[in-house]
Simulated scan of single mutants.
Amino acid sequence: MKLLLITAIHEFEKNIKDILTHSGVKVFSYSEVKGFKINGGSLSSENWFSSGIAESDSLMFTVFVDDNFVDLIYERIQRFNNKQEFQSKIHIATLALENFA
């Protein structure tokens, strides 16, 4: 059993749900989160009008899934990301679970 954490901008909600349901996932949860990205490395006091921080409405999905579905989900997310023409992508991380109930 693995725990997948998937984050993306709010606009990708339907795409992620489609990827999960077409990859054999039966149950998942998600919530709205604020995504932050610091642009240009470090913040500078020379730029009074820009904080250098971009904020976006994002989603975080938590998915408990059998090991045999993980590769397919990664493959479909990679395929989706490769088709994107702008910077935002779907991000995914896998955590191994020692125990669960």
Rank of each mutant, 00 (worst) to 15 (best):
K2R: 07
L5S: 05
I6M: 13
T7M: 14
T7R: 04
A8V: 13
H10Y: 09
E11S: 15
N15Y: 03
N15I: 00
N15C: 04
K17A: 12
K17T: 12
K17C: 13
I19Q: 00
T21Y: 01
H22Q: 06
V25R: 01
K26A: 05
F28P: 03
V33I: 13
K34P: 00
K34Q: 06
I38C: 12
N39M: 08
N39S: 10
S42Y: 14
L43Q: 00
S45T: 14
N47L: 15
F49P: 08
F49S: 13
G52F: 02
G52Q: 03
G52I: 03
I53K: 02
A54E: 14
S56C: 04
D57T: 07
S58P: 01
D67I: 08
D67M: 09
D67G: 06
N68P: 01
F69D: 00
F69N: 08
Y74L: 13
E75A: 13
I77V: 08
K83W: 09
F86V: 11
S88L: 01
K89D: 04
I90Q: 06
I90M: 11
H91A: 08
H91T: 04
H91K: 09
H91C: 14
T94P: 10
L95F: 15
L95R: 05
E98W: 09
N99T: 13
A101I: 11
A101D: 05
